[in-house]
Design a protein around this nucleic acid. Structure first.
Lengths: 151, 151
DNA sequence: GGTGAAAATTGTGGAAT
DNA sequence: ATTCCACAATTTTCACC
């Protein structure tokens, strides 16, 4: 399938929905210069093609009881073990994102917890279920996060 | 202000909107067991209080022309310089998130670019504008990302 | 693909409890 | 703070280009 570049109109739609995921079709139609129906159809197609993976509310970690964010680097205890770490970690809800990376470590996780004790417990669970050693970098503050990319 | 814990009803609403940012008020009302108006009012209040910071479409980096993700650690060249890095970096649109962290480095950035050349150029700009040295970890794949937290 | 319009559904504000 | 109600706006489908 067509990889890489998005058609300019789809690009415009996607940009608007990245900036405001609740923008109405009416609003989108005006901004991109199409009829409401046309926009509607394009958005559905973008969703089906997986260009748009979904919509989400961006939340304030402090105010929802998860004030502690951390980045955790994973290094396998047994380098010969099969690489099924994502599957092993998927069920741990505190893990927001999981990246497979090039470099010294194998994976980097972004996690959110309620307290230092919660982090300690989370690390114990991660090491146990995935048989890895961990290196944790605590986030002190978040100047900005989840900004929408410029297409 | 009330910090930390959210009222159970607000918690339920926030959880639903994290899972699907386009859920309708009607839908939300059914799921949390309130009238549409009550939900409507609560959502507006959550937005005003900043618990909900906004809504966004989650996009597939590959399909929007930004297939290369990286984590960049920043270390100040001059440790005595004033700490205004976030301000200096804010205008660089490739930087999706900026975390101030405890540990060897001062900041960790999550960035998305179109190509290795794009990454090279981005690194040059970051070093130039922020007077930092950088350490880059390239993301090979993303098993999962941006999952909504369990409240 | 796109348009325009009808029908169904949802959003929004106000008065009352 | 919640519910009910009425009106405005949006979503969704469909026939036609």
């Amino acid at each position: 399938m067509s990889n890489g570049v998005l058609e300019p109109l789809d690009q415009a739609i996607v940009r608007e929905l990245a900036a405001d995921g609740r923008r109405s079709f009416t609003d989108l139609a005006e901004r991109v210069g199409l009829s409401v129906s046309a926009v509607h159809q394009r958005v559905r197609r973008l969703e089906q093609r997986g260009v748009i993976r979904g919509y989400t509310a961006r939340l304030d970690g402090e105010q929802i009881g998860l004030p502690l964010t951390a980045l955790i680097s994973l290094t396998p205890n047994d380098p010969a073990a099969p690489d099924d770490y994502p599957q092993r970690l998927e069920h741990i809800s505190e893990i927001e994102s999981c990246y497979s990376v090039a470099g010294d470590e194998s994976y980097i996780l972004l996690v959110r917890v309620g307290s230092p004790l919660g982090l300690e417990d989370l690390l114990r669970r991660i090491r146990e279920v995935a048989k890895v050693s961990t290196r944790t970098t605590v986030v002190l503050s978040t100047p900005f996060e989840g900004r929408s990319p410029t297409l």
